[in-house]
Design a protein around this nucleic acid. Sequence first.
DNA 1: TATGAATGAGCGTTCATTCAT
DNA 2: AATGAATGAACGCTCATTCAT
Lengths: 203, 203, 203, 203
Amino acid sequence: MSSEVAKDKYGLILRTAEQIMLEEGMDQLSMNKVARAAQVAKGTLYLYFDSKEAIIGELTIKSRRKLLRHFQQAVQQHPEQPLKQLSAICWACLEFFKNEVLYADLVSFYEANTGLQETPDLLQSSLDISELVIGVIQDGQERQVIRQDVDAASLSFIMWGTNVGMMHLFASKSHHVTEYTKRGLPDVFQTFIELFIDSLKVK
Amino acid sequence: MSSEVAKDKYGLILRTAEQIMLEEGMDQLSMNKVARAAQVAKGTLYLYFDSKEAIIGELTIKSRRKLLRHFQQAVQQHPEQPLKQLSAICWACLEFFKNEVLYADLVSFYEANTGLQETPDLLQSSLDISELVIGVIQDGQERQVIRQDVDAASLSFIMWGTNVGMMHLFASKSHHVTEYTKRGLPDVFQTFIELFIDSLKVK
Amino acid sequence: MSSEVAKDKYGLILRTAEQIMLEEGMDQLSMNKVARAAQVAKGTLYLYFDSKEAIIGELTIKSRRKLLRHFQQAVQQHPEQPLKQLSAICWACLEFFKNEVLYADLVSFYEANTGLQETPDLLQSSLDISELVIGVIQDGQERQVIRQDVDAASLSFIMWGTNVGMMHLFASKSHHVTEYTKRGLPDVFQTFIELFIDSLKVK
Amino acid sequence: MSSEVAKDKYGLILRTAEQIMLEEGMDQLSMNKVARAAQVAKGTLYLYFDSKEAIIGELTIKSRRKLLRHFQQAVQQHPEQPLKQLSAICWACLEFFKNEVLYADLVSFYEANTGLQETPDLLQSSLDISELVIGVIQDGQERQVIRQDVDAASLSFIMWGTNVGMMHLFASKSHHVTEYTKRGLPDVFQTFIELFIDSLKVK
DNA sequence: TATGAATGAGCGTTCATTCAT
DNA sequence: AATGAATGAACGCTCATTCAT
């Protein structure tokens, strides 16, 4: 048991880095902190990762893949009902990002992580999500439940941008939101989704 | 007289810092650069501001107030037409953020960095914007052009969250967006607004 | 007194760096060591010098200028006698480098300090020495006391290369040399100069 | 058998280190690179060598021995003609150092870095060269083609010092030399040798 | 004999902040 | 009120060396 835990330095470093980012924010991540928190020498980090960027890159890929899996599940739960699928994707978003905005920063495949160069894996992890969403929207357009006067890509970007925006809002202003609206965040999010889905429907 | 000079220096520092941020980006701001560019000693900066963070905080307030003014103008241009007012507010948003990513970072900086404390002024600058938007929405609800089944505060937050989300999307992935959609950003934004405004209308 | 000493941080840093180089060799110089030895914070070094390279650059220029002055004096002491001037220049070399080979590394205007980019000042300090020596040789050729079948530049390079070579030899093998020859270094150097000067003479 | 394998590994490490130094320069040698290139574990290096320095020391000895062999060949090619032998030794020097700065660094590395300890082997490798040259000079003095007013040891050191000096000059400033003299390095070296040999002759 | 994961002091450099003047 | 020299912790990263296996 202990050997299992002890040996997975790679995972330990990744998890520690993630923890620090969750607690202090993405730009507060430093190799020093990771080493200290992981109880590992600074040099050890570089046995497992080429650079700090590589750690962030790996974390990003991991997050995106996890998110993709959530999206896929969401889609599978509502076969042949594209609108419900999109709605479920949004909820999966909320679920995934629930506690921390970090994941939104990390995952946002449309968003640049400053200075982080796109490796093939990184790019692919982004495209995979993109394709899934676009696919659902196109399916909806073919089934004539989603308006066809807007291209699927645009809708996909809008959906992603607004979702991430809502995540940020919730992460940074949750208190504010609940106080003013006298409603819970999921409740408000529910409204957001309804409005969004509603606007997608063919009239 | 001396207070006037002092106030000037306060403003000078602020303006200089803003200039640097606009030219080089938020993370390139350093007290050294500010002091040099403002032709002021480094120590002097600390007579007027407690910390670098305080400067950024003030700039954030300034930015939000500027944004508020733009929103107010947008509202005034379409008297008694709440939907057009909201639409104009969104466009003002885009306009405001268009050229300078800085403002997007600045306006949402404290929102995105949960670790930083919101000062009362900072909070107020945010509330002022909220109130304006809420007012417009409530007006629309009273005039029965905006659906009444959702409270104005919720709609206001959704509008703010999604708008900022779109700004971030554009700021960080404009290339992606234009490449994938084969459309210009304003064009995509136009779609976003249409969908959003449409979803607000009473059916 | 103490204020005079204390205030000359620039000189202090330079002198400290020189000391470290003399004691441990050029490649053993580190900003850490300089800071520690000079009893100054690491950051302070960068108030006075842009980089470690800049320190070495300044030291190089200083050394070259000092050497040039020695050369000039050597030349002045033997007006209109080029061979004696060259001989005196060689002796000045020995005198200058007496204790430490560092100066040979530092000063060698024909030699590259790895990675040290030539600033105008650095280049000029090199050219000044070059010109002096070449001038003396050309003078000797015009006066027909130095052989004219070899160009002055070549002779200048040979003189410099062999002199620096002798300095390195003495610095690294003084014990060896004295033991094998049963002579003092100046004595051996005297022979070196005689041979060299002799070989320059017109036959 | 096992000793044979062990010896192979010893040689393998040495050859690998030399290769790296030849390709990337002396300061680019790292134990990591050696281990990787030799396909040997890092720890294994320390079974055969006490330290990185020890490797460099051994390489220095190897280089000096190789140089000695070149010198011996040079001597053999001109039997009973000491001046030609010395001249040939100098050319062998140039030839040896020509393509690779490494050898110049290596041969004179421990000479230039006073802080490093000379092991007996290291010293001997140096003495061997000295002795060869001294022998040739003494032969010349006995044959009365080399001046007898200077002891052979002194001449030997002068020859070594000036030769190494010329090598360093060429290695570090070849561009300067060729540009200023408008001659090729071998050409300039030829002049150096002529002057030197000339100065050795009995008058 | 051989491994290679792990170390940790070290590198050059930056920069927000302090404080004696 | 204003200065700016000085600080020192922190940054990302390297690498010779050790040691449990």
